[in-house]
């Protein structure tokens, strides 16, 4: 009777769910760093989960599943930020700000401020993935669809911009 109502989870289902569960906290932290707004970050985290779930059959061909998952999260975060910016401008026009407040110790929030002040969303995601989550240039190339050389160059520029802003 149960089988008639719903199928049993397949290996791909289980693997996709487990993969997400294992990386959920790191993904959640990455998203907070990049989009900052916790409510939006949770929305993007759910979108990442759903997107990974829908693409779970590809997992057998994925070389670096962790990079694959972060690639989905990055793409969704950048997309959400574009929409969020439009929403924020609209809310500001009518005098409302529905962003959820920051959480974390003061020094961490200062760094988050600096990161958002100095870098745009794409560079911010790249720097966080490299220097907070430890992805190297080849992995970042897989995540972003750019070449490792281009990634290195962009990281170099972003680092310089960030350090310059930090010294101001």
């Amino acid at each position: 009777m149960i089988e008639a109502m719903e199928r049993e989870p397949t290996t791909a289902d289980t693997y996709a769910e487990r993969l997400f569960a294992l990386h959920e906290r790191r993904l959640g932290q990455f998203l907070v760093h990049v989009v900052r707004d916790r409510g939006l970050a949770e929305d993007v985290l759910q979108e990442t989960f759903l997107a990974a779930w829908r693409s779970r059959d590809q997992l057998g061909e994925v070389v670096n599943a962790e990079a694959w998952l972060f690639g989905i999260a990055r793409h969704r975060a950048l997309h959400a930020l574009r929409g969020a910016r439009r929403l924020r401008l609209a809310l500001e026009r009518i005098g409302r700000d529905e962003r959820t407040p920051d959480q974390g110790p003061g020094p961490a929030l200062d760094v988050l401020d600096l990161l958002h002040r100095a870098l745009g969303p794409e560079d911010r995601a790249l720097v966080v993935l490299r220097h907070v989550h430890g992805f190297d240039a080849p992995a970042l190339a897989a995540i972003t669809g750019r070449s490792p050389a281009a990634i290195r160059k962009r990281l170099e520029r972003s680092r310089a911009t960030l350090l310059k802003e930090a010294e101001r």
């Binding site: 959640g28 907070v32 949770e42 961490a108 760094v111």
Partner: peptide
């Protein structure tokens, strides 16, 4: 210091 910011789950 960013590591001290709690993740969303």
């Amino acid at each position: 210091p960013l590591a001290a910011i709690p993740p969303v789950t």
